[in-house]
Design a protein around this nucleic acid. Structure first.
Length: 893
RNA sequence: GCCCGGGUGGCGGAAUUGGUAGACGCGCUAGACUCAGAAUCUAGUGGGGGUUACCCCGUGAUGGUUCGACUCCAUUCCCGGGCACCA
């Protein structure tokens, strides 16, 4: 270490000044590559990964550092525990905002992305995270893209990527199609634009081929149950049977249905096809044709959202056709209705109104017969619809069988008669993988004149994006790449035939699907990852990120990982062993209302405080006259403070505080740069961890951060005398571990902080450090051993100050690889302990007694207490319960 | 509607998994320092009663199990999240 890095030599550090300490250590770490990770088989590895960010133009907000701080704490802790830690950071840099900015301004997205990543890197580095920056990656880097395209090629060559004309989620506002996972309530996940379903030719990835494995392998993962459940639901496995129903009057024409309740076949009194079902027009009778055509058209025009809007009202039309129920030969009507989805199962169902709520509603609406074929488990008649498992009834050969057995017997019967078979169905659809955008990875594919599609040779990867004039998507669902003629028109190197390049690009998820692999071997030009690096570093030991990626990124990466597993690139079935979702950091928004309902500009609106407004359903109205008003938000920096009360900047009324997700539109975003400037990175890190448990949402409070800042100041003053003129000087330490009280406190703190770190309970760990800093030197000088231990314990949380203190103790090396302090176990247990004495469970007094005192002496000591005697009133206690080391409970008569 | 979470002081949150409820921090109150403020330090701070000793109430609500319940069980209310006609 250079002498200039010794504490106090930089000039007048008269008090704890993060601005002097923090940049110094950040530069030190960078210059010395302190956190550089190399494969070292002699050490156990630990791979701590953050979900890498999309570098937006807005920069970091305080939500980002929460997860980053947590992984950083663990990384620093694990290094001190002797682990070889891989802790990298990079950029998920393809994405819509840079492209939209390009459309508006003509700036190449590459340029925007570069500026944004530079800003993100600066911000992240100002927080003192222990990333190995030599491993930084960027998904838009051609060297990275090459391998994204290479993986796509592997999928393509194994038939896992195919082009199909499918009904897609077309979002006109974004000018692109979206994956099912990107559509929420019929709107785009990004921006909430309307999405419609239209048929288009698109590239699909066969994620459904991995449905079972994606489901099964969830079992062994240490993930939050909620996320596992979301993935299970999304995969949506159901077991049942496919059954063929013969259509009357159409020789040999069958309609196949999927049912999870083959045991209720005797109760099937009608069938329903999705309006889009391919057989609809063929089987519709002449009398019903007009009605059916009308209904089909009507539902086709309805958006997906409108179709699902009110599920209670069932609509449908009889096709006039009849089918034979294969179990009893009964003729049953075939209807079409939009409550049956074309995309699930076979797009047709058999309806058992007695035992399915939806069928029941439909049958009631259209007066179709309802039949009871299942009784309760006790074989009693239940109210219909009865959807629980029970016992079959009125079902001939399966009568009296419990549901599970009845299903099995029915499936065996169907298979024997060759009219059906047991089947498993998944809700999971194949992954729609092409986007009509500029800023994404081009597909490494060429299309020949004969219609065949060929993958570009490995030696020609990566296929780079062409330069274009205009970044806007082209009409008719074509990507901007369509107009890059020189790029588009190429020749097949093998046959010399003219060929066209694929003009769609990959979705943003492509790059993030495998980035955790590249971090292990970021500059390898011969493989996406070397076998050595893969074997050593994988899997990721701790992965922290937002819960919003539950079924998007986390499902897609698992899928790609399994494909790579199958082709021998990776050796683990799953990429992320332990996953933690950090909770959101919420902001305070300030609300009022005005009567400018149309958002007209230049209008002098009448403003109202929230107190004058009540909610009338979805609408906000004035309490006084019931007229409608619209909510408005005052950005944080414009709020006028009257003491503790937030007020409208120009008018004289208080604003309503609403705690919610931070967003630009609310003006409640806290910029970490401002916090670092004022309190320093160590305070920001500490505060975010001190807010509460990592996985819970918590509101940001500007007052709250003062508490941790004061703690750091106190910690600093524990070590230094503050000198008004000149440098602060180190205090006199006592030698060794100090007096017994101090030695015990040190041991207890080491023990407690260590346990909390292992459990990711950072908030309680910090509180233990606070207690330590307040108590340790209260009555005696700070012992040297305590000072050393404290610096090391503080290091994962507040690394800059910790390094400063460590250096002040005379150490010349960074504390990064110092062994983690070990608690003296003999000091953790006390000889003399305090035990609470309770009467009837209520604490009344306490006794001081030897820790190893036997039950009888504890009992005697407790009963001897004057206060206890008072409660007993001279009588014998009914019972005395002694909980070793904790308390005595006396049951009074 | 279904499935997960979660309801603890004025606020963020602790509580070794059935054993002293409210650690730690914010805020607040009082005091010290200061010409003054800021900063810092010290003490107090769940509610109610009492001069003290001390007593009563208290973990969304109601009941139950237990010597003892924030913790377990049942019913119920509220908040957050996810899924939502998936046959």
């Amino acid at each position: 270490m250079t002498p200039s890095l010794k504490a106090g030599t930089l000039g007048a550090t008269m008090t704890y000044e993060p601005k002097k300490i923090e940049p110094k250590w950040q530069q030190f770490w960078l210059k010395n590559q302190t956190f550089r990770a190399e494969i070292d088989p002699s050490k156990p590895k630990y791979y701590a990964l953050d979900m890498f960010p999309y570098p937006s133009g807005d920069g970091l907000h305080v939500g980002h550092p929460e997860g980053y701080t947590a992984t950083d704490i663990l990384s620093r802790y694990k290094r001190m525990r002797g682990f070889n830690v891989l802790h990298p950071m990079g950029w998920d840099a393809f994405g819509l905002p840079a492209e939209q900015y390009a459309i508006q301004t003509g700036t190449h997205p590459k340029e925007t992305t570069k500026n944004n990543t530079d800003n993100f890197r600066r911000q992240i580095q100002s927080l003192g995270f222990s990333y190995d920056w030599s491993r930084e990656i960027d998904t838009t880097d051609p060297k990275y893209m090459k391998w994204t395209q290479w993986i796509f090629k592997q999928l393509f060559e194994r038939g896992l990527a195919y082009e199909a004309e499918v009904p897609v989620n077309w979002c006109a506002a974004l000018g692109t199609v979206l994956a099912n996972e990107e559509v929420i309530d019929g709107k785009s996940e990004r921006g909430s634009h309307p999405v419609e379903r239209i048929p288009m030719k698109q590239w699909m990835l066969k994620i459904t081929a991995y449905a079972e494995r994606l489901l099964e392998d969830l079992e062994e993962l240490d993930w939050p149950e909620a996320i596992k459940k979301q993935q299970r639901d999304w995969i949506g496995k159901s077991e049942g049977a496919n059954v063929r129903f013969q259509v009357c009057g159409h020789d040999g024409l069958d309609i196949e249905v999927f049912t999870t309740r083959p045991d209720t076949l005797f109760g099937a009194t009608y069938m329903v096809l999705a309006p889009e079902h391919s057989l609809v027009s063929q089987i519709t009778t002449a009398e019903q044709r007009d009605k059916v055509d009308g209904y089909v058209k009507e539902t086709a025009n309805k958006s997906e959202r409108a179709r699902q809007a009110d599920e209670k009202t069932k609509t449908g039309v009889d096709t006039g056709a009849r089918a034979l129920n294969p179990v009893n030969g009964e003729e049953i009507p075939i209807w079409i209705a939009d409550y049956v989805l074309a995309s699930y199962g076979t797009g047709a169902i058999m309806c058992v109104p007695g035992h399915d709520t939806r069928d029941f509603e439909f049958a009631t609406t259209f007066d179709l017969p309802i039949r009871r074929v299942v009784n309760t488990k006790k074989n009693k008649e239940a109210d219909l619809p009865y959807t629980e498992p029970g016992v079959a009834t009125a079902s001939e050969f399966i009568d009296n069988l419990p549901t599970a057995e009845a299903k099995q017997k029915m499936i065996a019967w169907l298979e024997e008669k060759d009219i059906g078979s047991g089947t498993t169905t998944y809700k999971l659809r194949d992954w729609l993988f092409s986007r009509q955008r500029y800023w994404g990875e081009p597909f490494p594919l060429i299309k020949l004149e004969d219609g065949s599609v060929r993958a570009v040779a490995d030696s020609d990867l990566p296929v780079l994006l062409p330069e274009v004039e205009d970044y806007k998507p082209r009409a008719g669902g074509n990507s901007p790449l369509q107009s890059a003629t020189d790029w588009l028109q190429t020749t097949d190197p093998e046959t010399g035939q003219p060929a066209l390049r694929e003009t769609n690009t990959m979705p943003q998820w492509a790059g993030s699907c495998w980035y955790y692999l590249r971090f292990c071997d970021p500059t390898n030009d011969d493989a996406l990852i070397s076998e050595e690096a893969e074997r050593y570093w994988l899997p990721v030991d701790l992965y922290i990120g937002g819960a919003e990626h539950a079924v998007l990124h986390l499902l897609y990466s698992r899928f790609w990982h399994k494909v790579l597993y199958d082709i021998g690139v990776v050796h683990t079935k799953e990429p992320f062993q332990k996953l933690v979702n950090q909770g959101m950091i919420l902001g305070s928004s300030y609300r009022y209302y005005d009567d400018n309902l149309s958002d007209a500009e230049g209008v002098k609106a009448n403003c109202h405080s929230a107190q004058a407004v009540r909610m009338d359903g979805e609408k906000a109205v004035l309490k006084s006259d019931g007229s409608e008003v619209k909510e408005r938000w005052v950005p944080l920096n414009q709020v006028r403070w009257e003491g503790k009360e937030a007020c409208h900047p120009e008018q004289d009324f208080p604003l309503e505080e609403v705690i919610e997700k931070m967003s630009k539109s609310r003006g409640n975003v806290i910029n970490p740069d401002v916090v670092v400037d004022y309190y320093g990175a160590d305070s920001l890190r500490l505060y975010e961890m001190f807010l509460g448990p990592l996985d819970k949402a918590a509101p940001w409070s500007t007052d709250g951060i003062q508490g941790v800042y004061r703690f750091l100041q106190r910690a600093y003053r524990l070590f230094f005398n503050e000198v008004i003129e000149g440098d602060d000087t180190l205090r006199e330490f006592s030698q060794g571990s100090g007096n017994e009280e101090q030695a015990r406190l040190t041991a207890k703190t080491i023990d407690g902080v260590t346990q909390d770190l292992e459990n990711l309970q950072f908030n309680t760990a910090i509180s233990k450090l606070m207690v330590f800093s307040r108590e340790i030197a209260k009555n005696a000088a700070l012992p040297r051993e305590a000072a050393e231990a404290f610096s090391l314990l503080l290091a994962p949380f507040a690394p800059h100050l910790a390094e400063e203190l460590w250096a002040a103790l005379g150490h010349e090396k960074s504390l990064t690889y110092e062994p983690w302090p070990k608690a003296d176990a003999s000091l953790l247990t006390e000889d003399l302990i305090t035990m609470a004495v309770a009467v009837n469970g209520k604490r009344r007094d306490e006794i001081q007694i030897a820790a190893d005192a036997d039950e009888d002496s504890v009992r005697a000591a407790a009963l001897a207490l004057e206060k206890i005697q008072r409660f007993l009133d001279g009588k014998e206690p009914k019972k005395v319960i002694v909980i070793k080391g904790r308390m005595v409970n006396i049951v009074a008569p």
